[in-house]
Amino acid sequence: MNPRVLIAKRVAQEFKNGQLVNLGFGMPTQASNYLPEGVTVMFHAENGLFGVGPRPSAKEAKADITNAGSEPVTLMPGAAVMDLPTSLGAMRAGVLDITVLGALEVDQEGNIANWAVKRNGKWWPGPGGAMELCYGTKDVVACLMHTDKSGESKVLKKCTLPLTGKHCVKTIVTDKAVFSVGNHCLILREHAPGITLEEIRASTAADFVVADDFCEMKV
């Protein structure tokens, strides 16, 4: 299975019936394609939409109805459209139940870095609304590839990049594993199909303990 699809499918299992769900750029937006059977949620886009529907066909897409990543979306019955300050205010106020954010790095303290890398001596591209989401959302899920292109762990003892949010991440989903954030260490709860505990140990810089009910992802 494509690793990004694997992550999106597993992330979707975090959603519970009736929740207000924000999906960040990239991989997180794909989770809406894999809602578990019988689960109904309302999706939020930070640029000002509550009630985001399925991706439209190219023929039906409208340039002025998009998510925050400029991807065309549809609106479900009862959807609400608002300006950006109102949407950001809702995010800060704790209206959302869960947000899924892509990450450059996460660490065992529940910190997340997802907005900046250094290019030509400058931090790029910018934080967007992720800081509001980290501050105001009850449940923050980070999703990312377990290692970078050089094979180095992106699940760290301590993030090295500028932080988006401190002590906010509750769950980490990668292409190798699912962790819960515990007390100064991670709790390894699931492994991806075909991935062994030894492989996870070898590719994870963070400290972690293995849950008693450690099992394979059901995707």
Rank of each mutant, 00 (worst) to 15 (best):
L188P: 15
G24L: 01
M145V: 12
G182C: 08
T40C: 08
F15C: 08
G165I: 06
P77H: 03
N33I: 02
V100G: 08
F179Q: 05
D175I: 06
M217T: 10
F25R: 15
R189P: 03
M131R: 14
S180N: 07
G53L: 10
V81G: 05
S70F: 12
G136K: 07
G94R: 10
I172C: 01
T86F: 09
Q13P: 05
G94D: 12
P193H: 04
A113W: 00
M1T: 15
R189N: 15
T174P: 04
F208T: 02
G128P: 01
L104A: 11
S150D: 14
L6Y: 09
L161T: 02
Y135T: 14
A205N: 13
W124N: 11
G194Q: 01
K218Q: 13
E109Y: 15
C185K: 15
A206P: 04
V106W: 11
Q13S: 08
L75F: 03
D207A: 10
A192F: 02
A93W: 05
L6P: 07
P54W: 00
A80Y: 14
M131T: 12
Q108R: 12
G94C: 09
E199F: 10
T204H: 11
N183R: 10
A177P: 07
Q108D: 00
G26Q: 10
R10H: 10
L104G: 06
V52L: 10
S203R: 10
K157P: 00
G121A: 07
G18S: 04
P77G: 01
G69N: 15
L163F: 07
S87H: 07
P193M: 03
I195T: 13
E105Y: 00
K16Q: 10
D175N: 13
C159E: 08
L161F: 05
I112M: 05
S32P: 04
I7N: 01
G128F: 02
L186A: 02
G94E: 11
T74C: 00
A63K: 06
L186H: 00
V106L: 12
A205R: 03
K138Y: 05
D207W: 03
R119G: 10
S87R: 05
F214P: 07
L161Y: 09
L197Q: 08
V52P: 10
L75K: 01
A68T: 10
